[in-house]
Design a protein around this nucleic acid. Structure first.
Lengths: 230, 230
DNA sequence: TCAAAAGTGTTTCTGCTACACCCATGC
DNA sequence: GCATGGGTGTAGCAGAAACACTTTTGA
């Protein structure tokens, strides 16, 4: 590999990439963004957006930049999920990857556009993922675990929900994230008791349709201060 | 930096290291292992053991190897805590680090010996850490968070405790790990109810001294199966 | 004799679970 | 009129928190 390249070091170094598992909730299901790879290795396979680390950026900045280049999206929130360093994870040679998950607003579901060296960018419901390139199945597993942790520490959910949402919306989101059902009544009670959402005033709304709420950021910070154990 | 080295690549690459936050419980306090650095940068400063990734090992293997070389210790458990990629975190240039925390048995507290390029290896109680080299203060913060998560998913505590221990031992450990107090009586009740420990039979033991227990691995695996949500 | 450390039990409160019923709407 | 989806209320149980008393022993 590259014995004549122009970057020379006294000791061996691996290549370093950043990969990004992007979540988006569309009101019905939790989705992740996949890129159909335009080149080898794994040409035409689905993979998470990502690419090589450049000289003056952190791993998070690299993940952000690659996402922007490949799809045009800018996440509302990002968090590291771990390093992937399996010796054979990339057929091109030794590549270490810093993994991230991130969250975009519901409106971004329609906005993602394949750019750069991505042949295609496409949202998949988390329950219906295709086969993935590299060790990205493992990357996804870890991303979901960290998303769940994020939900327990509370804030991420609201970024996925957007400005206005109903309680049944939230429940659908939780159902996908935790891959289990919730009792409709208990879910509503528990959630409203947190006091994190305010009802939207709209006298003309049909009684049949679910009440709409918006996120109360103030209350959220108050609560987080209390709950923060870590 | 190394424009004439013998390892040449077409694209820029960062150096990659692995760092290891090693925890040990001595019956009274939770300790971490620090190395007094024998060379620049940060010569004579305290840092976590670690070193450069080599060609045929994962980050975890590198962290394990460096720990063995620098102190002779072999951890009972290891887990990743994240990647550290700040642009200025190492004055030698761009260095990405994979962080780990690990756990050794109480007996290892006396066994750690400085070897290799470590001038000195020394245990510090987690509440009395000295100033740390690089971004290792941040590394420690993340390690402690992940140790706490490990405690919630249950197994790590017993590795720290060793074969035989008392309930007050466990409570001292929890006090250090979570940096808070626990009601003695409630702690004992809750812990025994888990059914993870068996009393050690010893008819001659003074009534004044606390009862001694050993870990029931069988019961632990049963419980974990039930509790495992992720 | 006093202080320190360990064992044990009771009460209360809170949160979670499991349910049943009512209302509005569209087919 | 019936199926669907949404709002609300109640009873029971389990776990957490708060709290007091007794025993043993070493200083």
């Amino acid at each position: 590999m590259g014995e004549k390249g122009k970057y020379c070091y006294d000791y061996w170094r691996p290549a370093v990439t950043a990969d990004n598992v992007v979540f988006c909730f569309d009101g019905n299901h939790l989705n992740v963004l996949l890129i159909k790879r335009g080149r080898e290795p794994y040409k035409d396979c689905w993979a998470f957006p990502g690419g090589f680390l450049e000289e003056n950026e952190t791993l998070e900045e690299a993940a952000r930049r690659e996402l922007k280049e490949e799809t045009g999206l800018e996440p509302l929130y990002m968090e590291e999920i771990g390093a992937f360093s399996g010796v054979d994870r990339d057929p091109r040679g030794r590549v270490i990857s810093g993994g991230f998950y991130s969250v975009v607003s519901p409106a971004d579901k329609e906005r993602a556009i394949a750019g750069d060296d991505a042949a295609q960018a496409c949202w998949f419901p988390v329950n219906e993922l295709p086969a993935l390139a590299f060790d990205h199945a493992e990357v996804f597993r870890k991303a979901l675990i960290h998303l769940r942790i994020g939900f327990h520490l509370i804030p991420v959910a609201f970024l996925l929900l957007g400005d206005i949402f109903t309680i049944p919306d939230i429940q659908r989101l939780y159902t996908d994230v935790f891959n289990r059902t919730f009792d409709r009544r208990n879910f509503q009670k528990r959630f409203l008791k947190l006091g994190l959402v305010d009802p939207v005033e709209e006298p003309e709304r049909s009684k049949r349709l679910p009440k709409r709420y918006r996120f109360n950021e103030e209350a959220y910070y108050q609560l987080r201060k209390k709950v923060m154990k870590f």
